[in-house]
């Protein structure tokens, strides 16, 4: 019994070690796919802005930000080798937590500062006329 459990433990250790040793490392194919996708996803936004392709600046801005998000995902998957299984899911948990804080920080700052801006706007000339 004890020997068997010892063996099991040993096997588990070996497995753990093999996994830890390599960490999450990619293959050549992973890196090449990631690189090609990243090049395409970088070239498109530069082209959109430099050649002024889309009719409005707002559309260009949206496209640039959308492509950036896609490229971040490509980097995460093909270069950083993120998946839900590495380190028993703890890396994914840390990432999700960070993303929540990042979203709160960014949207919160923009919201609050925009609000302040609109409320504390310096009086316009036509408002000044009504001041006694």
């Amino acid at each position: 019994m004890s020997a068997a459990s010892h063996d099991a433990h040993e096997a588990h250790d070996d497995h753990g070690h093999g996994h830890e040793d390599g960490g999450a490392h990619g293959t050549l194919k992973d890196y090449v796919i990631g690189f090609v996708l990243a090049v395409i996803l970088t070239a498109i936004p530069f082209w959109l802005v430099m050649a002024d392709v889309l009719p409005s600046h707002q559309m260009t801005a949206l496209a640039v930000m959308g492509l950036a998000v896609i490229q971040v995902l490509v980097h995460m998957i093909y270069f950083l080798h993120m998946n839900s299984r590495s380190e028993g899911g703890w890396t994914m948990l840390a990432l999700v937590f960070t993303l929540v804080v990042v979203v709160i920080t960014l949207s919160g700052s923009l919201w609050v500062m925009h609000n302040l801006d609109t409320h504390m706007m310096a009086p316009m000339p036509h408002d000044m006329r009504e001041v006694p």
Partner: peptide, 21 residues
Amino acid sequence: HFLDVIWIGVFSFVYLLGVLK
């Protein structure tokens, strides 16, 4: 690789959108 990810944000948000404005 993480620094490359941050640079995606920098070139998209700061440079490309900065030129658009």
